Computed example of a mutant assay.
Amino acid sequence: MSEEILINITPPETRVAVIENGVVQEIIIERTARRGLVGNIYKGKVCRVLPGMQAAFVDIGLERAAFLHASDIFTGDRQDSQQITELVREGGEIVVQVVKDPLGSKGARLTTNISIPSRYMVLVPQMQNIGVSQKIEDDTERARLRQILSAFAEESDIPGGFIARTAAEGAGEEALRYDMQYLQRLWRSIQERAAEARAVTVLHEDLPLGLRALRDLVGPEVERVRIDSRSTWEKARLFAHKFLPDSDAQIEYYPGERPIFDLYGVEDEIQKALRRTVELKSGGHLVIDQTEAMTTIDV
């Protein structure tokens, strides 16, 4: 199976296409103006503590202070009944992660229980256990994943706990180990920034789509990744050199005058998918109608 990943960069949006044996399998689009904050990690400063609400407001550099409830503050002894005044103090520095974007007049919601995703798993640095997604129902597969993760974490002395995501089902041992090493390097770099940075600083932003595609989509079956933006290509090479060294040679810059999506027929596939009637491989089709109250799909 031959697989390629195409990354098209324009000012308003980034588009990624997965091509398998010459056929478009997946298209992902991220618009620049609509990037969220969920997953971002900050070194913030507690600006107000409210004992009556068991919460605190934290300045992380946004327009409004973010909200941190006592139940979202990780404590090693697991005493969830601790008072907010025992956990944080006004003016104190704290490392937090956004779990909910700001909405209307409300600020972002925070947690100190950091979690960092990769393609196959999630690293939870404060925890020490190994978990498997509940969506993986096969007992044999769950046991296999637990054995691989536990063995590698023990032999590598990797701090933190790991949760195997649904995508890990059927993944090879080498790919899983690769993911754990990537998360380990990333968490160490975040810790280094946190130790050096002043309060109200971004320590880690969830990757833009171009780099997320490298993290989540590149595997042994991918022959090459083609990027039509030189600046994004340079960032991708640096990212791969640091976190995905085995994929460094697969990343290519596409300087051609013809748009890369036209070259592979991706634009035609996008236009077909956006039509009112969408043809299916089985011979059937979908009819999509949008009204003010609802969107209907007739199969």
Rank of each mutant, 00 (worst) to 15 (best):
I5W: 02
L6Q: 00
P12L: 12
T14P: 05
I29S: 10
R31N: 09
T32K: 15
R35M: 12
Y42R: 01
G44A: 00
R48V: 03
V49Q: 00
P51V: 01
M53P: 04
G61S: 06
A65K: 10
A66W: 00
F67G: 04
F67R: 05
S71C: 07
S71M: 11
I73N: 02
G76C: 07
D77C: 11
R78F: 09
Q79E: 15
I84R: 00
G92S: 14
I94P: 00
V96M: 03
V96P: 02
Q97I: 05
V99W: 05
V99Q: 15
K100Y: 01
K100M: 01
D101C: 08
G104N: 03
A108F: 01
R109A: 08
L110Y: 00
T112G: 02
I114V: 14
S115H: 14
P117M: 08
S118A: 12
M121H: 06
M121N: 06
V122C: 09
L123R: 02
P125T: 06
I130C: 08
I130L: 05
G131S: 08
G131Q: 12
D139E: 13
A143E: 13
R144H: 14
Q147K: 11
Q147P: 09
A151C: 10
D157Y: 07
I158F: 13
P159I: 03
I163E: 00
A167T: 10
E173Y: 09
A175N: 07
L176W: 04
L176F: 06
Y178M: 11
D179G: 12
M180C: 08
M180T: 02
L183G: 04
L183Y: 04
Q184R: 14
R185T: 05
R188W: 06
R188K: 08
S189W: 06
I190V: 14
E192M: 13
E192P: 05
A194G: 03
E196G: 07
T201K: 15
H204W: 08
L207N: 10
L209Y: 07
L214F: 01
L217Q: 13
V218S: 02
V218E: 02
V218H: 03
E221H: 11
E221S: 14
I227R: 03
I227T: 02
D228C: 03
S229G: 04
R230E: 13
S231D: 13
S231L: 06
S231H: 05
E234L: 07
A236W: 02
F239G: 02
H241G: 08
K242W: 09
P245E: 04
D246Q: 11
S247A: 11
S247H: 12
S247T: 06
S247V: 15
Q250I: 11
I251K: 04
E252R: 14
P259A: 03
I260E: 02
L263R: 10
Y264M: 07
D268T: 07
I270H: 03
I270L: 15
Q271T: 09
L274Q: 05
R276E: 14
L280D: 05
K281A: 11
G284C: 06
I288H: 01
Q290H: 09
E292L: 14
T296D: 08
D298I: 15
